[in-house]
Computed example of a mutant assay.
Amino acid sequence: MNALYRRLDVTECGFLVVGLVLVALAWVIPGWLMFLLTISLAKALVVLGVVLQMRAGLVSFGQALFYSIGGYGAGMGAQMLGINDAFLLLIIGVACAVVVAMVCGLLLSKYRDIFFAMLTLALSMILYGVLVKSSFMGSTDGFNVPPASYLGWVPTAANKQLANYLLAVGLGLIGAIAFHKLIISSVGGMTEAVRENEVRVDYLGLSPQSLVFINYVSAAAISALGGGLTALATGHVDPDMAFWTTSGEFVFIAILGGTGHVAAPFVGALVFSAIRTYAIQEAPNTWQMTLGVVLLVLVLFLPKGLWSLGEKFSKGVKA
């Protein structure tokens, strides 16, 4: 245990504690809250990819491209290939996304600013158009994803939601720790340097284009993982997973949580899901306006996101 602690910093130990608490809550919280947390964790993984690119000075308006590839990859693996193991289905979705990202990244790594944002959006909408026109993939209706097994264990209908929740908690914990290690590594530091001054990075003998490419592919992999989790949790995939509003939702969550810490996307995703659920319940015809007001207030009073509240509080305690 001491050896493990020495390998983990305070942030990573904090993630472990939160993960254990979430696991313990699985037998206490109601089903609707368990489902809400599962979807929030899945979307937080996608937002991690968005934040990772933001730290390099790039904003992706097409992250739904890989979110949908992860979902459709898992769904097609179950529906058409007859694979029912959840972990294999997630691997299929992530592998498909990484292949696509490596091809698209050769082009996108050359662009910055609005050009990068618009190209990512265009690629996502191309996939949306393909999915809508593909009758064998359900066209506009999509298709259902059969229940999965977990390393040979086939959960009953009553335990299916619990299994997906525990899977989301486990993968969320692994993803958070992995990306924290990436951010504090030399690669993560140089990625931020790309945002500040690409010329100086080039003078150091490193390729800014290669760093952006690595960032893009890494973000694609974690986003596809979130898409696969969503497909397993909801039991359905459809073209809306690739639509531009879905990408906008991920950017919204990134702004809501902030980019100052790896935990921020998880906080933002949970708060976003809670606000949207409440808004749809109380004002089903104007819930989009509610989200817009929240974003406006956030930009005006908390431009660095919700995570900046914790930073201000910690500074106040130290003072």
Rank of each mutant, 00 (worst) to 15 (best):
Q53C: 09
D9K: 09
S68L: 01
Y72D: 00
G57H: 10
M80S: 11
N285W: 13
N159K: 13
V187A: 15
A263N: 02
G316T: 15
Y150T: 04
H261A: 14
R195F: 09
L37Q: 01
L291Q: 06
A233T: 06
G257S: 12
L4V: 15
S109D: 04
L309V: 13
L302I: 12
G228Q: 05
V271L: 11
V299C: 08
G205H: 12
L204N: 02
S109Q: 05
C104K: 07
L291H: 06
Y5A: 14
K43D: 01
G129Y: 06
S218F: 10
V98G: 05
S207V: 10
F66W: 02
I183G: 01
A219S: 15
W153L: 12
A101E: 00
L131Y: 00
G138T: 06
V201T: 10
E12Y: 07
G49W: 01
L167F: 11
N215M: 13
A78S: 14
G49K: 07
V18Q: 05
G71W: 04
P146A: 08
V100W: 02
A233I: 06
G138H: 06
G175N: 03
E198V: 07
F15A: 08
L65N: 04
A319E: 12
V271C: 06
I280F: 03
N84S: 15
L45E: 03
F179G: 03
V132Y: 09
G260E: 08
T38D: 03
K160S: 05
G227C: 00
G172Q: 04
K133T: 10
V98I: 15
A263R: 11
A220W: 10
I174V: 15
A64L: 03
T156G: 15
I29E: 03
G172V: 07
S139H: 08
G310T: 09
L58M: 13
L204T: 12
G14T: 00
G235Y: 09
F313R: 15
V293A: 14
V299Y: 05
E196M: 14
D238Q: 11
R276F: 01
G31P: 02
L108W: 04
A86R: 08
S60H: 02
V132R: 13
V94Q: 01
V18W: 05
V132E: 06
T230W: 05
A319G: 14
K315S: 14
L20T: 05
F266W: 08
S135E: 13
A24E: 03
A74C: 07
L225F: 05
G31E: 09
G175C: 08
D141L: 13
L173D: 00
W27G: 11
L36E: 04
L36T: 09
